[in-house]
């Protein structure tokens, strides 16, 4: 008997909850005032990598547009759980934000589902080129292979041991593109060079990233690179062993000013500005953008502290120009 009652209570609770569900969600309010952006990001805004590159870009966009009067943005960082991110995206859209940025390739599926429910809101998804043919979704990606290629060219010109090391997270997406570009650039410059690549299977295991770098050093590497937030462990190893380091996504110079040669930096504002302009004109999506060396969305930042030989600097500049002109192909995209 008592058990039966238990079951009844549970059913009653569930029934009550469901019936409470009848209320309609509040309609998004049309607001005068600043342009409102919401962004959902997988890691933390100060990861010195992927998420920080977007956060910093938003700060720059805000400044260019004229501060908080003109544009405000809210963020959810650390949203690595895909369905939590989906809930956040839907919620931001329902709150009436003008632009909702899903900054992670794993969020695409959710966006595909949510965007049609909010035809007045513009969504943007990266990194990808796929807008699903939905006309309120923009897409963006980084041609990270281009900066990778340039870094590879410089590394291969500077190495004395002819061995380079790469520390990657998992073999996919932006990371794989960057690594493949680096390998291609290095091999095109110096046929004798050997590039050892290590994927550690994690975006967060700083200790293993550091040990991967140690392995590269033991294998003779005198220049290394790596991508994603766990490489901060590898940079320390480079510094300790006086090996050159090449950064990507955000500037990593400050972590090891003596050994960082160059960084590929993402400047998403190039894409964001364009998207904000389009929204102003009434286009809410349907286009995809790529940041690359040509449009200034990717910049190679040389560490001023590092004494880069003149001829290598020239070679790097020529390579950048060659990629922009299309005379050099990174040869990684299929």
């Amino acid at each position: 008997m008592k058990k039966l009652r238990w079951i009844l209570i549970v059913l009653l609770v569930v029934g009550l909850l469901l019936s409470a569900c009848q209320a309609q969600p509040a309609a998004p309010e049309e607001e005068e005032g600043p342009f409102q952006i919401a962004v959902v990001m997988p890691s933390s805004i100060n990861d010195l990598a992927f998420s920080q590159s977007m956060y910093d870009a938003l700060l720059r966009v805000q400044e260019e547009m004229g501060g908080e009067e003109a544009m405000t943005f809210d963020y959810s960082d650390g949203m690595f759980v895909v369905d939590d991110a989906a809930a956040a995206i839907r919620d931001y859209a329902a709150e009436g934000y003008d632009l909702v940025i899903a900054h992670g390739s794993q969020y695409g599926s959710s966006l595909q589902e949510i965007a049609p429910d909010f035809p007045e809101t513009s969504f943007v998804w990266g990194t990808t080129v796929d807008t699903f043919g939905i006309d309120n979704i923009f897409a963006y990606e980084a041609a990270s292979d281009e900066g990778g290629y340039v870094n590879g060219v410089i590394a291969a010109s500077l190495t004395e041991s002819d061995v380079l090391g790469v520390v990657g997270p998992i073999e996919t997406g932006d990371a794989k593109l960057y690594v493949d570009g680096f390998v291609a650039g290095a091999e095109a410059t110096n046929p004798d060079v050997q590039v050892n690549v290590n994927y550690i299977g994690s975006f967060s295991d700083v200790a293993l990233a550091s040990e991967a770098a140690n392995t590269h050093v033991a294998a003779g590497a005198d220049a290394m690179t790596g991508t994603a937030q766990m490489v901060v462990g590898a940079i320390g190893v480079a510094e300790e062993n006086d090996a050159m380091w090449f950064g990507t996504q955000s500037s990593q110079t400050e972590l090891a000013p003596d050994v960082v040669v160059a960084n590929q930096i993402y400047r998403w504002e190039v894409v964001l500005n364009e998207i904000i302009d389009l929204i102003g004109e009434g286009t809410l999506g349907g286009q995809s953008f790529t940041i690359n060396l040509e449009n200034g969305g990717e910049v190679i930042e040389f560490n001023p502290e590092y004494d880069l030989p003149e001829d290598v600097k020239d070679l790097a500049d020529d390579t950048i120009q060659g990629i922009i002109d299309g005379t050099i192909s990174t040869d990684v995209s299929e």
Partner: peptide
């Protein structure tokens, strides 16, 4: 059920909890 009810596909961010939500 996360696949057939929520995400409609399997997807990973490289960690386990990205899919399972812990």
């Amino acid at each position: 059920m996360q696949v057939y009810g929520v995400n409609y596909r399997m997807i990973t961010d490289g960690s386990g909890s990205g899919f399972t939500g812990r």
